[in-house]
Design a protein around this nucleic acid. Structure first.
Length: 898
RNA sequence: GGUCAAUUAGCUCAGUUGGUUUAGAGCGCUGCCUUGACAGGGCAGAGGUCACUGGUUCGAAUCCAGUAUUGACCACCA
């Protein structure tokens, strides 16, 4: 054997991933085993792997790999989301670079380009997930716009329409003038920006020089004004109520009305009402039955209704209207102020409120059901408090109907056909025509006009847990895999996606699977936190503060990065990625401590492997120390397994990983291997070696879900394997009962060893110099050392000439210490600094006295003794006795020093 | 403005529903250690009146109330 001193992930990771793929270990087919299913939150088909994906998919991979090791039929379905706005924007941009304008293309031509783009660039992110080690069933890769999934979308649309859950209505929506589509509230990002408040005076009709002054951010919209509103109790304007004002520049008269919506102390107290361009104004307009004048085109330019500045973009118009107002002596003043402005998440253009006819899903009953599902724990959230956020979204005061139409081409076209005022909703145009014929027997297909819009992407992703199993066509697979076990996602899409999937479960699972089958799409939801940079800013593409994920994997290995990501936080907690990096190249400047730690961990395990593989074998029987060491480690392993099971059950993945890290590095490498390690050049007995390899192999299985590559590599290096005997499909050990006494006694041996080492350290005695240690004979010490091999273990680990019992009160030229309730003397061949020893003992004594005092106080309290459970009281009594014993030893030691 | 969460060692965080020897981990830090599995290492050590003030309790980091600070989400004034 000739293993390098450093573990090199770059050579092993690709090799093992290819091996797993070749063996088809990730693929799942329904069988008699218990299924364990996860559907991936489909990333945008345009996406590239970022830190959030890495975290999220590492967690899913851990859960899937663990289930697989536990013998379940693990199925992790990957796929991508067609992301209508994002993808269409990318395609438009690419075409523009080629000199092609979208407006010059027909719908079919554009879609041809879009599919071409998708085939060439889309879904890169799935390849990148493989680098991370994701064990998805790639044969099951799905896409939200592929034919079967689109068919499901249309079917659902028609079904909801028939049930009366859909409606089409004129509503105030968020309008992206650049993409020329409606945006959901969630796609609008509000930020504080500098703005100016224009104070404009409107002449009162029939007066010579009486005016009313309003304040507005958007002077270019005055042509769409329909009224001026003041608060009914505002004394300043009482004499004007009911009169009319004249809009400057265009000289149209509008009424002065009252509405309590107007704030008395903001601006001038008078508010222009522009229903077409402000949601609140729209409501005021509705209340007062005012008409609507819309002066903007879908592209955000002034139209004919504006009368002036027609054809100008709204921002250009704002600039140009200023001199016009000044000239008309209508501009009173301009005030700078900060306000929140909404911008489109995708195009960053300022969002316009706009009246438009759109399709909506009636959410009232749906939201109530979805709320109840989580309240009643039919679906459990981790962490639980995420329910609060969920509640604030879905409660009946906040819930809004879901606008599902988008003015785009990339997506499922809305299956609604119009003829005059009639609408026919059907899964195909033939069916729509058949419907139409019932009313208009002579109608032809050409006379039917299909809706130009496509459906919101979430209207396909909300079906994902069912549609990826083709559940809308046949229920064979759905019956087996549905409900999925757990959904792992960020809380930022709790409403977009999680809530809507729950709703779709309510609505469609019973009709597909029957009433007896579980209907919720998942049992648990694990919300990951957001990944933030070292300044705690959310990492996002637009901020450019997310490092290149693939470069990280190259630097630290996928195992190292997985370790680093995971160590950082519990479910729901944000993760701070600690390595500053170059914003331009996205390469990491300084080392990420956490990923480095992961890489170092791999190396540590690698070197433990080298140690074991380097040992020669003897047929001698195992020594007492080796027998005790293996027995101890076996028990300790069971104890660790038990605590791991609990951590995993609660989705405390970082806790589980940390437990394993400490167990492998500390208990296995630093203690166990050192206990059984033969002297330099000496062989090890066959039994102990075999045991050691078995332990190591089991550790690799347990760690495998977290760090799949290094564990697979070590698993194979440990011993010759039969074909198909791979770590990834080995058996996860079940926790057995364990002997607590052995664990405790060996822990005491570790403590004594550490004390001896500490004295060596402080006194400058080399670890190589063997020393004599004496333990005062007492019932406790005799009981402790009854355990065979314990004495020899301490002798080996602390490098002693021997550990001897003594009945003496004090040993010549020795340094005393207390461990547990036993007193030890370490013989040292040097002058002892009596004062320093006294000080040390005194300090220890004071600590113990303080401790005992506290316990005594507790025990002398009758109410404690009477009220606390017996076990707690007993524990306190034991604490007291132990403390008192230690005080006695310390006091004697101090006397002997004098 | 409304709601939620957080505040524990230099940093990042646990602390499992009030009792585990007067608070734990990892990293960092300090000291010592290089022919021996690993310096990407070993051994050991120092570091915290659990944000503050009250309250409940035999007992509070843990429960309650208030205060302060931070963060997030929602709603917003033209």
């Amino acid at each position: 054997m000739n293993l390098s001193t450093h573990y090199d992930p770059s050579t092993t990771e690709a090799r093992w991933y290819a091996h797993w793929m070749e063996k088809n270990y990730f693929h799942s087919e329904p069988d008699e085993r218990e299924p364990f299913t996860i559907v991936i939150p489909p990333p945008n088909v345009t996406g590239v792997l970022h830190m959030g994906h890495m975290l999220n998919n590492t967690i899913q991979d851990i859960l899937i790999r663990k289930a697989r090791l536990e013998g379940k039929n693990a199925c992790w379905v990957p796929g991508t989301d067609h992301a209508s706005i994002a993808t269409e924007a990318k395609v438009v941009k690419k075409l523009r670079a080629q000199g092609i304008k979208k407006s010059d293309l027909s719908r079919e031509e554009f879609l041809a380009h879009a599919w071409e783009w998708k085939e060439e660039y889309g879904g890169k992110i799935l390849d990148q997930l493989q680098k991370l080690g994701a064990s998805c069933d790639w044969e099951r890769t799905r896409f939200t716009m592929e034919p079967k999934l689109s068919a499901a979308v249309l079917r659902v649309f028609v079904s909801l329409y028939k049930k009366g859950k859909l409606y089409r209505r004129l509503r105030m929506v968020n309008w992206d003038s650049e993409a020329q589509t409606v945006l959901s509230n969630e796609e609008v990002i509000y930020g504080e920006e500098n703005a100016r408040l224009f104070h404009i005076r409107y002449k009162i009709e029939g007066t010579k020089d009486e005016y009313i002054t309003i304040a507005t951010q958007r002077p270019e919209t005055i042509m769409a004004d329909i009224a001026i509103a003041v608060h009914p109790e505002d004394e300043r304007f009482q004499h004007l109520i009911g009169k009319k004002a004249i809009i400057p520049l265009i000289n149209r008269t509008i009424p002065i009305i009252t509405d309590t919506y107007v704030e008395l102390d903001f601006g001038t107290g008078a508010l222009k009402i522009t229903p077409a361009h402000d949601p609140n104004d729209y409501e005021v307009g509705q209340r007062h039955n005012l008409k609507v004048i819309d002066i903007l085109t879908p592209a955000g330019k002034l139209n004919e209704e504006a009368q002036i500045l027609v054809g100008e973009d709204r921002f250009a118009a704002r600039k140009k209207i200023k001199p016009l107002l000044e000239e008309a002596e209508a501009l009173v003043q301009i005030e700078d102020y900060r306000t929140k402005i909404g911008r489109s998440e995708r195009t960053d253009s300022v969002v316009e409120p706009r009246l438009s006819k759109q399709w909506f899903v009636d959410m009232k009953q749906f939201a109530a059901d979805a709320l109840e599902a989580v309240r009643s724990k039919e679906v459990t959230f981790y962490p639980e408090h995420m329910f609060n956020m969920y509640h604030s979204w879905l409660n009946e005061d906040n819930i809004r109907d879901w606008c599902i139409s988008r003015q785009l081409w990339w997506g499922q076209r809305i299956p609604a056909w119009y003829y005059e005022d009639d609408v026919f909703v059907a899964e195909s145009e033939e069916e729509a025509l058949a419907q139409a014929k019932e009313k208009y027997p002579n109608i032809t297909l050409a006379e039917l006009q299909q809706d130009e819009d496509v459906l919101d992407t979430w209207f396909s992703s909300w079906l994902w847990p069912m549609s990826v199993f083709d559940g809308f066509e046949s229920q064979e697979e759905l019956k087996y895999y549905y409900p999925t076990n757990v959904l792992v996602t960020g809380w930022d899409i709790m409403f977009f996606w999680v809530a809507r999937m729950i709703i779709s479960g309510y609505e469609f699972a019973p009709e597909l699977l029957g009433k007896d089958h579980e209907i919720m799409p998942f049992k648990d939801v694990y919300f990951t936190g957001m990944v933030r940079d070292e300044k705690r800013q959310k990492m996002s593409k637009s901020k450019g503060n997310s490092p290149d994920a693939l470069a990280l994997i190259e630097n630290y290995g996928a195992d190292g990065v997985r370790f680093g990501m995971l160590l950082s936080g519990a479910a729901g907690n944000d993760i701070i990625f600690d390595a500053p990096f170059d914003k331009a190249t996205k390469s990491v400047l300084n080392e990420s401590q956490r990923c480095l730690q992961g890489r170092n961990f791999c190396n540590k395990m690698w070197n433990a492997l080298r140690l074991i593989k380097g040992w020669e074998i003897t047929e001698d029987a195992p020594s007492a120390v080796n027998q005790l060491a293996t027995e101890w480690f076996d028990n300790k392993l069971q104890q660790t397994l038990k605590s791991l099971d609990q951590s995993m059950k609660d989705y405390r993945l970082s806790e589980a990983l940390m437990t394993l890290y400490n167990f492998i590095w500390g208990d296995f490498c630093s203690w166990y291997l050192e206990m059984v390690k033969p002297a330099y050049g000496e062989p090890i007995d066959r039994t102990t070696l075999k045991q050691t390899i078995e332990f190591y192999e089991r550790l690799m299985t347990i760690l495998h879900p977290f760090m799949p590559f290094v564990t697979e590599e070590i698993w194979h290096q440990l011993k010759a394997r039969a074909k198909g005997e791979d770590c990834i499909i080995s058996t996860y050990p079940k926790a057995q009962s364990f002997n607590k006494t052995i664990i405790e006694k060996v822990e005491r041996a570790k403590e004594v060893t550490a004390k001896v080492r500490e004295i060596r350290n402080t006194k400058g005695i080399s670890p190589k110099e063997a020393l004599s240690l004496y333990v005062q004979e007492s019932p406790n010490s005799l009981a402790l050392y009854e355990l065979a091999g314990l004495k020899a273990m301490i002798e080996k680990m602390a490098n002693l000439t021997g550990l001897y019992f003594t009945s003496m009160e004090e040993v010549e030229s020795s340094i005393g210490f207390v461990s547990g309730t036993e007193k030890y003397f370490l013989e040292v061949q040097l002058m002892i600094d009596v004062e320093a020893e006294r000080e040390k003992l005194q300090k220890e004594l004071e600590h113990q006295r303080g401790f005992v005092k506290g316990v005594e106080k507790k025990l002398s309290n009758e109410r404690f003794v009477n009220n606390a459970p017996a076990a707690v009281v007993d524990k306190e009594r034991k604490k007291l006795a132990d403390g008192q014993a230690r005080i006695k030893i310390l006091e004697e030691s101090l006397e002997n020093l004098a």
